[in-house]
Nucleic acid binder design. Structure first.
Lengths: 145, 145
DNA sequence: TTTTCATGTAACTTTATCTGTTACATATAG
DNA sequence: CTATATGTAACAGATAAAGTTACATGAAAA
């Protein structure tokens, strides 16, 4: 894991959950699929849980499940739930704003990036977890131990 | 300075250069405008110099100038010159690609982000340094010492 | 030609952010 | 009760960006 691949991890986890709709998958099991740590899985799926995209249950035979059918979960929702921007923030520090040029550059770029993000969101709204899962068909989906 | 605000710094510097078309501005003078370090200015403007957007001259009365009129420099060119992506890379590590799900998620997201980036670039091509400068009119442009 | 002042870079330090890890509280099925 | 899962806090390590220092190089100006 290197870059900010949180969104990628989240999508990956969701597709794994989709692949086994009736099972609860534990953070540990998912972590071994995602080649990361159970705590990292909990952190990421925790955000998705707050957005009601997945549900967690504790105790023996507990774990994670999709809270809704994969057809009803768009990548846009996942993206929003992560509270992450796919667009780099170009804003300067608050302290720099004494300069009028900084303010106008920031303002213009903020507008442009807001537009771009809206377009991107629109595009992501067309993509569903089930689409990602379908994309994997033909390729083998590794079963969990 | 905190975030990856290199593009913001570059645009800010270019607008300062536009504001004083006949003067050479030194890295030190620009650094005090941008509230950063002369070396950082040289690093950033150095990339713009390679893209022929600005020119540098050494020695006394040397410094930086726009290589072309501000009307002929688009933000897209600046963006390209910085070799920076405004879009976050969602790709996983090469090692993770043993899993078919990772590969398909990455592939789909790569396509979506490439489309989004193309749209963004198109939009940035409409924006010129002179537009950013005009945006600052009415607000005072601080003169350099 | 010599001095002065600017860029051009390399190398290192500092800082911010993200991930990995450990530890433990909490809850729940059996 | 006990085993096993999530939920979090707290801290360590890795990475990348920015800040800093130092100095070589080159060009204008005296």
């Amino acid at each position: 894991m290197k870059k900010s691949s949180r969104l990628s991890l989240a999508l990956h986890a969701l597709v794994h959950l989709e692949a086994q709709p009736d099972k609860h998958l534990t953070s540990t099991a998912l972590a071994s699929c995602l080649l990361t740590n159970p705590v990292v899985v909990r952190r990421i799926l925790g955000e998705l849980r707050e957005a009601r995209l997945v549900a967690a249950s504790k105790g023996p035979s507990g774990g994670w499940m999709l809270a809704r059918p994969a057809e009803d979960i768009t990548v846009r929702e996942v993206y929003a739930a992560m509270g992450e921007s796919l667009l780099v923030r170009t804003q300067s520090e608050p302290g720099d704003h004494g300069c009028a040029i900084v303010r106008s550059v920031d303002a213009v770029m903020k507008d442009v990036l807001a537009d771009a993000e809206a377009l991107l969101a629109e595009r992501l709204a067309q993509l569903r977890i089930s689409d990602l899962a379908r994309q994997t068909h033909g390729a083998r989906i590794p079963q969990l131990g």
